[in-house]
């Protein structure tokens, strides 16, 4: 059971830093074609920002921001986005994950459609990685049964 830290300096600095870390993670995901990074790395940074919130603000307050149902939903939604783009290409008479065929739907040339398809796949990967990282961390750090603790708060 992770409790809230009673130190105001650590709490304030973490609260200031978390949104900027998340914006940086979005930059790493979106800019993954040209610089180091991509879906997995951006997802890890997003997960690390939530872990920072978890170790400074405690489990109860973090669950108000991201409920466990949402985490489970996210972890399957990313896989759904990844596989959905792949199957969409199959339905348009291409191979699995053949992004060039997406130009019919998006109404843009095939080269631009390829870039958009890769971006969609990386967004799916990052959502899954973030949700699975948070879920692993909460599962390890809650050694005891905390369903009773939830009812009290």
């Amino acid at each position: 059971m992770i409790r809230k830290t009673d130190d105001i300096i650590i709490r304030t600095v973490a609260r200031i830093l978390v949104p900027f870390i998340q914006i940086y993670a979005l930059y790493v995901i979106m800019h993954g074609h040209y610089s180091p990074g991509g879906g997995f790395q951006g997802g890890v940074i997003l997960g690390a920002s939530i872990v920072l919130l978890l170790i400074t603000h405690g489990l109860v307050e973090t669950k108000k921001k991201i409920p466990e149902k949402a985490i489970a939903l996210f972890s399957s939604m990313g896989v759904f986005i990844y596989a959905g783009i792949g199957v969409l290409c199959l339905l348009l008479f291409g191979n699995f994950l053949d992004y060039g065929k997406l130009s019919v739907i998006l109404n843009i040339p095939p080269a631009a459609a390829r870039a958009m398809g890769i971006l969609g796949v990386e967004i799916g990967v990052s959502i899954t990685v973030m949700a699975v990282m948070i879920s692993i961390f909460t599962s390890i750090s809650t050694a005891e049964d905390h369903s009773k603790y939830d009812k009290e708060h």
Binding site: D7, I9, I10, V13, I16, L17
Partner: peptide, 16 residues
């Protein structure tokens, strides 16, 4: 800017 915020905070946390 990030190091200027983070490094004293980490030092404070570990000393406490």
């Amino acid at each position: 800017v990030f190091m200027f915020l983070a490094q004293p905070t980490a030092t404070h946390a570990i000393s406490k």
